[in-house]
Design a binder for these strands. Sequence first.
DNA 1: ACCTGGGCTTGACCTGGGTTAAGGCGGAGG
DNA 2: CCTCCGCCTTAACCCAGGTCAAGCCCAGGT
Lengths: 195, 195
Amino acid sequence: MRFPKLFERLATLAPLPPEEWVKAEAVAKEQSLAKRELFMRPGDAADRFAVVLQGVFRGVRVSPRGGESIKAFRAEGELIGAYAEMLQRLPSMTAIEALEPSHVLVFQTRDFQQLEQGHVCWERLARRVAEQHFVLKERREQEFLELSAEERLVKFWEEHPHLKGRVPQRDVAAYLGITEVALSRIMSRRRKRAE
Amino acid sequence: MRFPKLFERLATLAPLPPEEWVKAEAVAKEQSLAKRELFMRPGDAADRFAVVLQGVFRGVRVSPRGGESIKAFRAEGELIGAYAEMLQRLPSMTAIEALEPSHVLVFQTRDFQQLEQGHVCWERLARRVAEQHFVLKERREQEFLELSAEERLVKFWEEHPHLKGRVPQRDVAAYLGITEVALSRIMSRRRKRAE
DNA sequence: ACCTGGGCTTGACCTGGGTTAAGGCGGAGG
DNA sequence: CCTCCGCCTTAACCCAGGTCAAGCCCAGGT
């Protein structure tokens, strides 16, 4: 077992027999990415995903009109991939970019489907992951519905303290649904109020 | 089998043997709700869900500060329930209210868990449902990130034509994340532009 | 026919965030 | 050491949407 810590983490979502984990590692490949390198680009087939071993990524949705918005940041222990597109068997509409020199463990979805055939535990895990993702998206939806940009900012740093200093401000703005100019204003407003 | 149409619809998500469906119907209870009646209220245990047989519902999130926002509308063939809270084993934070005289088929989650023990098909179905919900929430997130209120409105009616005339305007506004005043203005603006 | 109330509209005014454009500042490379 | 570039800030101006308040329309009840 090459990654016991990762195994423990995943096993908290659904019971995973160690021998199944060994099978999973057999089909996984490690990959290193330089800062700014893309794990996935728009138009790619959404046929693989990865676990972040080291580094931070941003998932960028590039709209037809050229606007960039950020769907999520992902750090150590989290999954990267065009999940929604994978489920719908569509080509990826998002770019996934390393914000630091990073290191990931890559799975092909076809290999993962093989694992699912072999043991129900993988299917259970997939369900948990889907449910987890849903809960997070719903939380985010609710924040858009009832919080101001400033309140969303505060909550963002409460919920993602580990991203401090690792993601550029403009990306935080794009995640919150505002421009970097607005974010800068909000921050100076708070600074003034605090002093 | 009391609800063959419903069965067919669900079976498109994941294969369901008819005999399993019969077991499901055995534990389900029909319930009728008057207009404005609540299927679930904030604080209730999130231990049951239902399929809408007839009618329309709104899922209302009541924020601590008293603001109301609408998470979703649900009509015939769709599921109602405090799904996120159920997954997190939290009491419901949403009210689910009938907008018309309605008729639903209710399942207790404990009964459903029994079914899951009996046959994997239910677990597969649950996974599909979670994935489906995720895809929808992600779509909504993306709309908040890159569309104006007016564009969201247009998209809303494109995607939910069957709700026309069945949901009050103020609720559509709350769903879009704006006030009914703003919605009214947007509509008159469009009327003017169209003429 | 008259009231009543709920839901929609309209207007006046305010505010937050978008847009554009002009700096400031610190780090990497010449 | 200077320059350039990427990133952040600030300012000026505009507009969408919020808030408050007054009205309108119509369906239901008496």
